[in-house]
Amino acid sequence: MKSLARKTDLYAIAWRLPMLVWQGLFFIGPLVFMVAMSFFLVKNYRMEPAFQFSNWEKVLGRGFFWDSYFLTLWLAVLATCVTSLVAFPASYFLAFKVKDTVRRWAVFFLIIPFFTSYLVRIFAWQVILAQQGVINAGLSFIGLGPFTMLNTKFGTMIGYLTLCLPLAVILQTFSLAQIDKRLVEAAHNLGCGRFRSVFTVVVPLAKTGLVVAAVFCFILSFGDFVAPYYLGGSKPPTLSIMIIDTSKSGQQWPRAAVIAIMMIVTLLTVAFAAIGYAYRKRR
């Protein structure tokens, strides 16, 4: 007699189903529907199922869209570089120059802002950076300013940093802390200067983690609408602001879907290219 592995293992299936059903229905479902929606038509503010390329033509045929596309891309790349560079010395310090307990506490604190209201933090920056705000008032005591910081690219960057910096420092610290410290010491012994060893030894060894941190910064800032809107003044709008304008005020969900799909394609391309780069030439 043959005893096959029970094919209908109810117990196993029971634990697989919740995730599959829920994420299938409410994550994959919406995303697939959005692709379909991009071919729908809008008549009298009502969406009708159809298979027309008009939305794609209208969105992609406008210089307005492409201006916004490259602006968004540029801002996200800039935010990624700025965040990575700003985070690095702090991550380096936390990874190499402090005790384990200090590092654990630092990460403990860095996790907190990541899970707390981004919106309220941005509002606080609005008040701080305003023309008569805390910073300009402080600067006026030493006879400087006032500087216009709100509704500028600078303001947008402050917002992106608020969003990305805690996560970037956490991820960078983890990847740097994994480096074998003896390798860094070996580089020193071989006469490699301190700053040179950072770039010739530390950065290559932590490459994967640093790239992953950068990818997260890119994803977060590419999709964020709060920083460019409330701190950057939304002129010109980024893609995420365009999605809001198109869908919220114009009821043009299909056109918003086209923009969203373009964003996803861009994100996937950048993410895969970056991860591919991160894992290349290792081992």
Partner: peptide, 16 residues
């Protein structure tokens, strides 16, 4: 899910 920009997921969910 966390890697998809919220605004895109918001639009998709709204439509769906």
């Amino acid at each position: 899910p966390p890697t998809i920009p919220l605004i895109i997921f918001a639009l998709a969910t709204l439509g769906w």
